[in-house]
């Protein structure tokens, strides 16, 4: 009896989506030049290559301190700048504060910016300002506006209209309303998201470094290009530690802020 009750019929309605999915996967695999022979060879090659990467070049670690600091400092400068700029973009992009044309302009700028990975922004900035941390700082600051600006705008639009009205009713000018009502309202979430953004920026900063913003990403890329694999391991381990510490620190700080404590 039991075996008769079991039939493929109940899986039939999954057939069409499954076929579409499989077709898409095959098309995508073909596009991506997936090649299992390469993969097998790659795994074998990768395993034999691991021997070159280990042990890390211990002497190189002291030399990694400066690049690692550069990577962090780029984020330390860029994140507050991005946060400050995103307050302006946020104010200008909020429905209840800005005129419609300004809101549309700001919202479109933010949307365009969100569509561009930081590294693409960096490539343009490198073409303009040349290689170096300055382009990296600018790229990350601009990159932060996309996320934080949208966040601030949305937070401002969620402010109860009556609060704004009552401030205006007692005679506050628009600037005073912004200074004493809007900013205090959005600041906690802005600070907490900026700290999260800092963590994102650290990862991005490593990537940007490899393209020419300097820092640990540059060291890593240079070491691999010069076939100094042991040195590359040292750089990779430093990067790992950097990202790990920034993630922990960011989690800790955000938990404290959300818990109502002070930084």
């Amino acid at each position: 009896m039991r075996s008769k009750e079991f039939s493929l019929a109940r899986y039939r309605r999954h057939a069409r989506p499954a076929i579409v999915l499989v077709a898409l996967v095959i098309a995508a695999a073909w596009q991506c030049e997936v090649n299992f022979r390469d993969l097998l060879k790659g795994i074998a090659k990768g395993l034999s290559m691991l021997a070159f990467f280990f042990p890390p070049e211990w002497r190189a670690f002291p030399e990694m301190i400066h690049p690692a600091l550069v990577t962090v400092i780029i984020c330390v400068i860029a994140t507050p700048i991005g946060a400050a700029l995103s307050i302006f973009f946020g104010l200008a992009g909020a429905r209840n504060l800005a005129p419609p044309w300004l809101r549309l302009l700001c919202r479109s700028l933010i949307a365009i910016e969100r569509g561009l990975p930081e590294i693409v922004i960096l490539l343009i900035l490198v073409a303009a300002f040349g290689l170096g941390p300055f382009a990296g700082i600018m790229a990350l600051a601009i990159g932060s506006i996309g996320m934080l600006g949208k966040l601030v705008s949305d937070a401002i639009e969620e402010i109860d209209g009556r609060v704004l009205d009552s401030a205006a009713a007692v005679g506050a000018t628009r600037l005073q309303v912004i200074r004493h009502v809007v900013i205090p309202e959005v600041l906690p979430s802005l600070v907490s998201h900026s700290i999260f953004r800092f963590e994102v920026n650290v990862r991005a900063s490593v990537l940007l470094g490899a393209v020419g913003a300097g820092g640990i990403g540059y060291e890593l890329n240079a070491a691999i290009n010069q076939l100094e694999y042991n040195r590359a391991t040292a750089a990779a381990l430093t990067t790992l530690a950097l990202v790990f510490v920034s993630e922990r620190a960011s989690d800790f700080l955000r938990a404290r802020i959300l818990g109502g404590g002070t930084v």
Binding site: G42, G46, M49, R203, L207, L220, I224, T239, L240
Partner: peptide, 11 residues
Amino acid sequence: CTPNIVVLLVL
């Protein structure tokens, strides 16, 4: 914790 770029450079 490993950035994409490290993985890519090795791959």
